[in-house]
């Protein structure tokens, strides 16, 4: 049981990063369906950086920058050129899939150098790791996992306790009112979309650099889409994202654990997708005011139309 919960955290970490990234983007009023694409760009950039430099940190940073660059295309199209957000996001996913597969041909069959793998060795956090039950599950991971915890908490504080977080609510609920009150709407959108992209890039890198660490085509296998659904599931709340992401991490690995139960692996593989659908339906049924998406989500903002 403990080992399953431990593995669940690892499997949930890329989902957590991607969920937080998409949450940042949606909080600024933009729906970016390019998560899968940005994750793949990040995955291949992270793998390449780690492979050539032998440095874990450069691998992560490279993935973040690459993810942000992908998001920049989307931001330019949707914020500056006011293009349709759904189609722009889909285009970004197709682009990212192509780029990752193209660049990835350099790395087929390659393994991450040991130096990089060692830099993501498991670290026991003193005291916390000795806590009964939760210690071995939560506090004996690589530092990427810990960055995930910290990131979720920081974003929670950012959204709910800072002036910027308040401004974001204004922007995503009613951009023209926010603009009238002196908030630079487009700048906010750019910054949050780019940071969101960086987190998605890191999500991809966790897969290619730490979790697998070997190059595979289409390494994300639909996790980016699950992350978009998770944002709805956790009601745009970064702390809830921790639970949502690890829960879905668990679902994605449960197949291996239940192999002895003579249920076909292929049927168990349906679980994360089927549960995502159920979650989507449930969150649309229990439509209360708090759970509703930001009002301005997906609607392009035209200052001139104000």
């Amino acid at each position: 049981m403990t080992s399953f919960l431990f593995a669940m955290i690892i499997a949930g970490t890329p989902l957590l990063f991607a969920t937080l990234g998409e949450m940042l983007t949606e909080k600024s009023g933009n729906l970016n369906l390019g998560v899968e694409g940005m994750m793949l760009i990040g995955a291949v950039a992270g793998f390449g950086m780690g492979f050539y430099t032998g440095s874990g940190i450069i691998a992560i940073l490279g993935a973040a920058v690459a993810g942000a660059l992908g998001a920049l295309i989307y931001a330019f199209l949707t914020v500056s050129l006011r293009a349709n957000q759904v189609v722009s996001g889909l285009a970004l996913t197709i682009f990212g899939t192509g780029i990752a597969s193209f660049v990835g041909t350099l790395f087929i069959g390659q393994k991450m150098p040991d130096r990089v793998i060692d830099s993501f060795a498991k670290v026991k956090i003193p005291l916390l790791s000795d806590l009964p039950f939760i210690g071995p599950i939560l506090f004996r991971h690589d530092y990427f996992v810990y960055i995930g915890y910290i990131m979720a908490i920081c974003l929670g504080i950012y959204f709910y306790k800072t002036r910027f977080g308040l401004n974001l609510i204004a922007i995503s609920e009613n951009p023209s009112a926010a603009d009238a009150s002196g908030i630079h709407v487009n700048l906010y959108k750019y910054i949050h979309i780019l940071f969101g992209g960086a987190l998605c890039g890191m999500a991809g890198a966790y897969l290619s650099v730490v979790d697998v660490p070997q190059w595979q085509d289409n390494i994300t296998a639909g996790r980016g889409w699950i992350a978009i659904a998770l944002v709805i599931f956790v009601k745009w709340n970064p702390i809830m994202a921790l639970f949502g992401a690890y829960l879905f991490g668990g679902l994605s690995i449960i197949g291996f654990r239940l192999q002895h139960l003579s249920i076909s692996q292929n049927l168990l593989d349906v679980l994360p997708y089927a549960v995502t659908i159920i979650v989507l339906i449930l969150s649309s049924i229990r439509k209360s005011k708090e759970d509703a998406p930001p009002k301005g989500l997906g609607v392009p903002y035209f200052r001139e139309d104000r």
Partner: peptide
């Protein structure tokens, strides 16, 4: 995959 990239660039 270059063909895929070309397609998405056209779309962009």
């Amino acid at each position: 995959s270059a063909a895929g990239i070309l397609q998405s660039v056209i779309l962009f």
